[in-house]
């Protein structure tokens, strides 16, 4: 310490430039780190949204969030959209639809309080066409639309220590499935997802034929998306935009009940 009026010592004179520089370096580092964090967030959010495949999400009007319903009712209680799927496909704006089913079970053997294990039923043909960025680390997609097989995201496979050809059990249902493939890491929610063939999943949950809780929609080039959104919004759904980008050619949207 230097008292008032006291001449700084030689040692102190040597030290203070070092401390000043260290302070400058540290503050620059923090600034760069924060700037990088902001830039990363801004850059990855639209990418994550885009990789979901749907710039719009459509939920049931007045209903609680889908995840809450799943948790409270153990995968039951969702309204299914078989009739809507068929009518959507006939809409003039729609080029293609992909049905998705999300069901969950409570697994009491995850930690002390248990946890939720969630499964995605997908239609291979349309789903894979919409997500061409999904690459396999091992194996490949299901061998058939009704195969007793799963495809696991990178993180899900790591947690369950699964490799292609292994068996995976759905807790509570106690049904084993063969692991057809393990996906490469994508940095999206797909990493933690376990995919099953769409017709297989509801059968395991004792609800055969109830095929979907979400519908992804691909619009035709130049289609009037506003008209379709209005129409969807009026049939027990609400539309939540998940992308800041304005809808344009080849854009997709999702409808969930």
């Amino acid at each position: 310490m230097i008292a008032k009026g006291q001449e700084p010592s030689r040692q102190w004179k040597k030290t203070w430039p070092f401390l000043t520089m260290a302070g400058l370096v540290l503050s620059t580092g923090v600034l760069l780190s924060l700037a990088g964090f902001n830039r990363g967030c801004e850059g990855s959010l639209p990418k994550d949204m885009k990789n979901m495949g749907f710039p719009l999400l459509v939920k049931a009007k007045g209903g609680p969030e889908e995840a809450v319903i799943l948790m409270l009712k153990g995968g039951r209680g969702l309204r299914h959209m078989q009739p809507l799927l068929a009518s959507l496909a006939r809409e003039p704006e729609v080029e293609e639809v992909t049905p998705i089913l999300r069901l969950a079970v409570f697994d009491p053997h995850q930690g002390e309080s248990g946890g939720i294990a969630e499964y995605f039923g997908v239609e291979i043909r349309s789903f894979t066409a919409w997500k061409p960025f999904l690459k396999f680390r091992q194996g490949g997609w299901f061998t058939g639309e009704e195969a007793s097989e799963v495809v696991m995201g990178y993180e899900a496979a790591k947690l369950e220590q699964r490799e292609a050809g292994d068996l995976l059990l759905i807790p509570e249902k106690n049904v084993p499935f063969r692991v057809a493939g393990i996906l490469e890491r994508t940095g999206t929610q797909d990493d933690g997802t376990i995919f099953l063939p769409l017709p297989t999943l509801p059968t395991v949950f004792g609800r055969p034929g109830e095929i979907t809780a979400t519908i992804g929609i691909k619009l035709k080039r130049g289609a009037d998306s506003a008209r379709l959104e209005e129409k969807l919004g009026s049939c027990l759904t609400k539309i939540i935009p998940v992308s800041q980008e304005a809808p344009h050619e080849d854009h997709q949207m999702a409808s969930g009940l």
Binding site: D107, P108, H109, L159, E160, L169, P171
Partner: peptide, 13 residues
């Protein structure tokens, strides 16, 4: 055993 995926996990945990 913090986590186990098995029909018999209850007994082993």
């Amino acid at each position: 055993i913090q986590k186990m995926t098995s029909q018999y996990a209850g007994k082993l945990r």
